[in-house]
Write a protein that binds this DNA or RNA. Sequence first.
DNA 1: GGGTTATTTATAATAATTTTATTTTGAATC
DNA 2: GATTCAAAATAAAATTATTATAAATAACCC
Lengths: 154, 154
Amino acid sequence: METRIERIKKQLHSASYKLTPQREATVRVLLENEEDHLSAEDVYLLVKEKSPEIGLATVYRTLELLTELKIVDKINFGDGVSRYDLRQEGAAHFHHHLVCIECGAVDEIQEDLLEDVEAIVERRWNFKIKDHRLTFHGICHRCQNKAKEEQPAE
Amino acid sequence: METRIERIKKQLHSASYKLTPQREATVRVLLENEEDHLSAEDVYLLVKEKSPEIGLATVYRTLELLTELKIVDKINFGDGVSRYDLRQEGAAHFHHHLVCIECGAVDEIQEDLLEDVEAIVERRWNFKIKDHRLTFHGICHRCQNKAKEEQPAE
DNA sequence: GGGTTATTTATAATAATTTTATTTTGAATC
DNA sequence: GATTCAAAATAAAATTATTATAAATAACCC
């Protein structure tokens, strides 16, 4: 945890930004909630618990900055709010998501899986891929089990 | 064109909605601009040319309805506006997009390409896939050529 | 420690979308 | 054809997410 903060501090410095207390508090919230896909508002509320004097605009600016430095990824599942996700250290590409249309849960896929598809796209469409977004919408394993329990005979 | 309108009319009817003149005008705009990825505002302005009395809220409601019936797909490339795309007739899945980070152009990929990946995800994560969103961000063939022309020696 | 500059704060502004209250429309029935 | 009733459209206001602005503050270099 501390070492990751240190590394992020270095990343900021090498782009001549500072790790201010507000930025550090924001990064800590992201680290502590790495599993979740927090909206700016979510982050704001969590940061406020520890640092009540922070402003919402600061959180937005910090998230934007972190996005620019590729420390976090900004995603959008189509519900009108942007969500922010810490990028795995050293990950070349953005990870994928499984969005459950029953319960709304968002799970992550860290594996790339797209190497072959990207090779085809680069060749056939002559498109130089820099990043990707892949989201599957469907029914998660939890909701499938729930359905089975309710109708065991099916 | 007319047959597609007829079919959409039937789809609406089978969900007990009507193809009102406003809805028809909206659908026509979508059909006439199938290549593009129009925002609600774009659609509104185009519909207004032919039916100046239509309201923006009606366009929003119609697009929402068409999305619900899977006649159009709502997408979001992360720029704050939702865009609406007619789904290919008979297409089981949503098509993919190539977004150019240089010029902003959005090209489409109609091929599925994801069969193998989806099989892996369904098996390994036990996730029942209903739909997907795949977008590549990178540099389109046009911008690559432009760059080459400007620096022929590289 | 003082000065410069980046950063934060609070507030206002903007942009996209949704809601509400009211009116219009149109099909179905009399 | 007039009447009725529900669905749909309108206009305007409200809401939500996000960004811009200007004044205040804080960090860091010398």
